[in-house]
Design a binder for these strands. Structure first.
Lengths: 353, 353
DNA sequence: TTGAAAGCGCTAACAC
DNA sequence: GTGTTAGCGCTTTCAA
């Protein structure tokens, strides 16, 4: 008691620095501390009378619950960790915009980690787990089975966003990329393209593989052999670089499917500025994602829209109540027809400006 | 003790669910729990011998410190909260890319909040403060003095990023926007532009005001009266919309300074596709920020580069040791000359493609 | 150099 | 309904 007293007086000295606790509120309201807890934890019974007195005391004291203490006792914070790589690809800001909104509506917080540069997912996960996060959403391809086991052991649900794995215990939410690839192929073939190429992203990511597989399946079905299939990563720079490679070998290229919109932008800029190709008159181009800038006049890109809102909802649904067995949710994309695929009937109708 | 025993046996039943604590490590290593703490808190004395035994025990138990418990006792987490609005403006992904890297190198975590949509900064700050964050970085214009007071009371440093205020207690880190505006004006005048306009962003933000003030100051000094000064927000859509307004009234427009690169993109697209203006032959355009896409061939935008790396470092420096008095750090931007400002000497030299 | 012990602010049995 | 009480896992005096 003596020690306690000493502490208290220290606290009194610099009172302005110490925020109000449930104990303070209880004292002012003339109730027990646990009654205050019951109000804020929204659990157990509290009479209207007590509730009111507590609310008033809390207001005068400017009481705010301490999330750290709450997390410590409950064993769970309300933090969701997002691991991203290449946040400068405009697809991700779009996703983050939707995701932050959905999270904030639930009263959850977002940890943002960037697995670009020096750090990988595996480096970053352990420190995330220290906060007893509610879940981890991974938007990068790499995740070692070691790290996966770590999350499983701590009972932290992991969901891969915009990709998936068939390894057990890891949930996945993605667009139906195979079907998307098929739609792209169908569209280019319908436009009368003959010399068709695919510029992919990260070669072993499910995102890239599925889009490619669907695309090539339809091409194959129509006995159309692609003039080139090249893969590296989902960036503007790679799109432009890939065009360099392709055009050298196949100057008569007339149809191009790109792994995502950023790649498509790079490809289009290279085709126009380095090789004087008109889009879509000389080359038809299709992207993937439908990021906001895809609709801007500079590109006016035909693409496949990812259902980001529904993907985010599906992701949070998994975090709220993780299914026993790992689950892969595939949602349909939507073909968005704009100005980078020529229409077969009127090939000369379009002018470049 | 009886109760304690009961708890313990419960814990044993579902042992796999309970992560190792310092207590467990201490037991295995044959030392006290406080010795383990001293090792991980990196404070106080621990002999080499103990240190080794503890390290070994920790490894076998896969011990990871609990950030919530640590935060509770120390009164501080290692979380920095970032409040953003309009994350889809490519300037912010760029900043986040740099910022996440700098944070992770320090072993800090990032809370990301989006003040777009339904939520404002003021809505979001209280819940951030519950986590005893190390600091708050605000990338939005709005922050009520009420909320500012709240942070001050909790002794949480606040720094405005890419903007500032002269109100007390709030730090600010920004580019020298006035000087940037001056450089833009000097460049347009040097190119021989006569009919010059400014398309700004959020009208009362320091970012917008300073760029405009610097720009108009130089114009005024050269007796050049702008044909239009319009302001709304920092978006692509607004850039295009603003051009509609300006061109109606001033079809002979030949010089344009835009509040940021996104606005410039919208303006350029509208000038080209709706009004058949050639850039820079008919109209010279300057942006601000130098976001990554500014250098892409589609725009090849002349602009002023914000020193994002140095801005981030300055921001974190403030969070690490907040100065007593509020402090505004202004860092110089860099003029980046590309293809959207015509050179005076050879006005007919450029071709659009 | 090490250990014992108090307590950060909160939740959740449990007793009344 | 309400209060009492025992910790959650950690840091930090303080004594030895």
């Amino acid at each position: 008691m003596a020690i306690k007293k000493r502490r208290k007086s220290m606290a009194d000295e610099k009172k302005r620095a110490r925020p109000a606790t449930q104990h303070d509120v209880a004292r002012v309201a003339g109730v027990s501390q646990s009654a205050v807890s019951r109000v804020y934890a929204a659990r157990g019974y509290v009479s209207e009378d007590l509730r009111k007195r507590i609310a008033r005391a809390a207001r005068t004291l400017q009481y705010q619950p301490d999330a750290l203490a709450r997390g410590l006792i409950t064993g769970r914070s309300s933090i969701v960790a997002i691991v991203i790589a290449g946040i400068t690809n405009p697809f991700y800001p779009w996703v983050l915009d939707v995701l932050t909104d959905a999270l904030q509506r639930r009263g959850w917080q977002m940890f943002l980690f960037n697995a670009a540069g020096t750090q990988t997912v595996d480096d970053v996960i352990p420190s995330v787990l220290q906060y007893r996060v509610r879940g981890v959403v991974i938007m990068t391809a790499e995740l070692s089975s070691n790290t996966a086991a770590l999350c499983k052991e701590k009972r932290v649900p992991v969901v891969l966003f915009n990709r998936y794995t068939r390894k057990g215990g890891i949930h996945g939410v993605a667009c139906d990329n195979e079907r998307g690839g098929e739609m792209a192929a169908e569209s280019l073939l319908a436009a009368g393209c003959k010399q068709i190429a695919y510029i992919g992203g990260l070669s072993n990511s499910s995102t890239n593989v599925d889009r490619k597989v669907g695309f090539l399946r339809v091409l194959n079905r129509h006995d159309c052999k692609p003039v080139a299939v090249v893969e590296k990563n989902f960036t503007y720079v790679w799109g432009a670089e890939a065009v360099d490679q392709i055009i050298q070998a196949s100057p008569t290229l007339d149809g191009l499917f790109c792994g995502d919109d950023a790649v498509a932008f790079g490809a289009i800029d290279a085709l126009r500025s380095r090789y004087q190709r008109r889009i879509p008159l000389d080359v038809s181009v299709i992207g993937f994602d439908d990021i906001p800038s895809a609709g801007w006049p500079a590109y006016d890109l035909t693409t496949i829209r990812q259902p980001v809102e529904r993907m985010v909802e599906a992701t949070l649904a998994v975090l709220e109540s993780p299914p026993e067995r790992s689950e892969v949710v595939l949602l349909a994309g939507q073909f968005i027809s704009r100005g980078t695929v020529r229409s077969k009937d009127e090939p000369g109708d379009r002018r470049e400006n």
